[in-house]
């Protein structure tokens, strides 16, 4: 039994994620739920879900670190940190030789350079519009009448890809409709859409300075089509952790654990001195 637990909560624009760690940093459980605009409620839901699942009581959770777009809305948090810090920390914990993180979420994409010791270096966010993000793919899946989970397999098995010239979500949608009207096959369109995202992110990553090994985090890392195109365009292998979507929450949890350890050390010094 662990003496205490730490929770990382990542309240994103698309999903709420929670990770529970024990005092040794071992991840006991995680939960993911769609946010659907209810930030506070979905945060509470993922939190209760992992507590119920692990049987850990709320009192045993010594720190809750929040991150993501809704990080400051959550009540009863120990501290909030940005996604840049948390994704970097989570990726580094998963694989300490990682130098570069590409996080593509629902609303924005980020490219983060890590110093060899895991500290955050330069970073860039694409946040002016939804193009190049998960939301773009969600809109397109709906337009095409397919499921989000199918997109990846469809894309990687298609030999052809459509050229999607527009990077704007609104214009790309009408472009897709006209491609379909011209008789373009759906898998080729899907592959073209994944490529459009990868191109966008490539621009972002180049500005930071692409430095392998590269890890992809965020929900879009589950889309094999985007992953495949990114590794082709960047000419680099994309390392995908087993649960890419929860890396931010994991990083938040680890930061919480480090905070506790640091303040314990301080306490020890004080008690030794007195």
């Amino acid at each position: 039994m662990s003496a205490y637990y730490v929770m990382g909560l990542d309240i994103g624009s698309a999903t709420a994620k929670a990770v529970l760690l024990d005092e040794s940093g071992y991840s006991l459980a995680f939960a993911v739920r769609p946010t659907r605009g209810r930030l506070v409620q979905s945060a509470e839901e993922v939190k209760q879900e992992i507590l119920a699942h692990t049987g850990v009581s709320e009192e045993a959770v010594k720190a809750i670190i929040t991150t993501g777009y809704g990080r400051d809305i959550v009540q009863n948090k120990t501290k909030s940190l940005t996604e840049i810090t948390c994704h970097a920390r989570g990726a580094y914990a998963t694989m300490p030789n990682i130098r570069f993180v590409i996080d593509i979420g629902g609303q924005d994409s980020k490219a983060i350079l890590l110093e060899p010791d895991g500290q955050v270096g330069r970073f860039e966010m694409n946040d002016k519009c939804a193009a190049g993000t998960g939301r773009f793919l969600e809109v397109m899946a709906r337009t095409l009448g397919i499921h989000l989970d199918e997109m990846g397999d469809m894309a990687i098995h298609s030999e052809k890809y459509s050229k999607i010239s527009s990077t704007c979500t609104v214009f790309a949608e009408s472009e897709v409709i006209s491609l379909l009207a011209q008789g373009e096959e759906i898998p080729a369109v899907v592959s073209g859409l994944c490529r459009a995202i990868a191109e966008r992110v490539y621009g972002l990553a180049s500005r930071v300075g692409i430095t392998p090994p590269i890890m992809m985090t965020g929900g879009v890392a589950k889309n094999k089509g985007v992953v495949n195109w990114l590794s082709r365009i960047l000419n680099q292998e994309m390392i995908i952790p087993p649960e890419p979507q929860i890396i931010g929450a994991l990083g938040a949890g680890i930061m919480g654990l480090e905070m506790i350890k640091k303040s314990n050390e301080k306490m020890n010094i004080i008690t030794q001195n007195t």
Partner: peptide
């Protein structure tokens, strides 16, 4: 301009600057 987006960048940057200085 968007308060949300710029604010977010500033927060992330300051976390970086702070951790660099501490180190």
């Amino acid at each position: 301009w968007s308060d949300e987006q710029v604010g977010n960048r500033i927060d992330a940057f300051m976390e970086r600057v702070a951790s660099k200085k501490q180190r």
